[in-house]
Design a binder for these strands. Sequence first.
DNA 1: GGAATTTAGTTACATTTGCAACTAAATTGT
DNA 2: ACAATTTAGTTGCAAATGTAACTAAATTCC
Lengths: 151, 151
Amino acid sequence: MPADVTLRLEAYLPYRLSVASNRTSRWVARSYEARFGLSIWQWRVIAVLGGADRLTAQALTASTAMDKVTVSRAVRALIERGLVERKKHQSDGRSALLALTPAGRSVYDEVAPVALRHEAALLDGFRPDEIRQLTDLLLRLEKRAEELAED
Amino acid sequence: MPADVTLRLEAYLPYRLSVASNRTSRWVARSYEARFGLSIWQWRVIAVLGGADRLTAQALTASTAMDKVTVSRAVRALIERGLVERKKHQSDGRSALLALTPAGRSVYDEVAPVALRHEAALLDGFRPDEIRQLTDLLLRLEKRAEELAED
DNA sequence: GGAATTTAGTTACATTTGCAACTAAATTGT
DNA sequence: ACAATTTAGTTGCAAATGTAACTAAATTCC
């Protein structure tokens, strides 16, 4: 077997991705948990709701890449904490519109800058073009994995 | 708040990483599970043992980036399936040396090419320099996250 | 208009995970 | 040499997760 087609875990892309993702999320997650008592999923919901007035859970699953059960649980917890409110959807009785409460909004206003500082800290030492490149490559990879999964 | 320091989840790096990693591992994991009955962790252990004669569990945790509990469980399952064997370590009574059995070796010989084909399929459409760049950026990011986590 | 199907969201259950506590052996320090 | 600490690995238990089954509303299609 030629050397360059040998399997070496440390150079195996899905492995590298997984390690990179786990390390960064673990670090970031600890901080949200410690400072705000938010899980990663709760935080994602807040992040998306913070940038949009009112959304259905369906729209949330689409823009957070979480599945509907995960969204449902995160939303329930946030409602219990008074950070999110649910309003009946007038034209579709199955779904409801979700929005941040004033309390939720103020958590968002606090969390968002922290999140951005985290990102900046992670990317300290990366050039802007490298960051663009990384994001671009990741998006292409996601798209590719999505396509492949459809078989 | 200026537009370019606004939090947008879809451009948030830890999020992108998480989505990219989850999609690729999910795809890859399904295949290992379906074709070989191996979890991702079992597969990692096999991959590393396939490239090294005999290792301690400790060495496995280091080179798989899994924690020791995860390694312990994966190894146990592999031993139960007869793919890995444990030999007493002569000089250190706490640990044992792990190695693939002949059956384990033949699973490795089957799985490794499949893994490489998966990777190639994912990276179809990427130029070699892009792949190098991606790996490099991921490694730097991992290192950075590791440093940051140490506080 | 009404049965059949699809879609939104929740609940229930089994599996996985992650952390802490534990056992046992090795190492360190005196 | 022997108590105290560290290291290797396992086990137990609580919490997180994923899958499938479910309820209820909307849509499709005769």
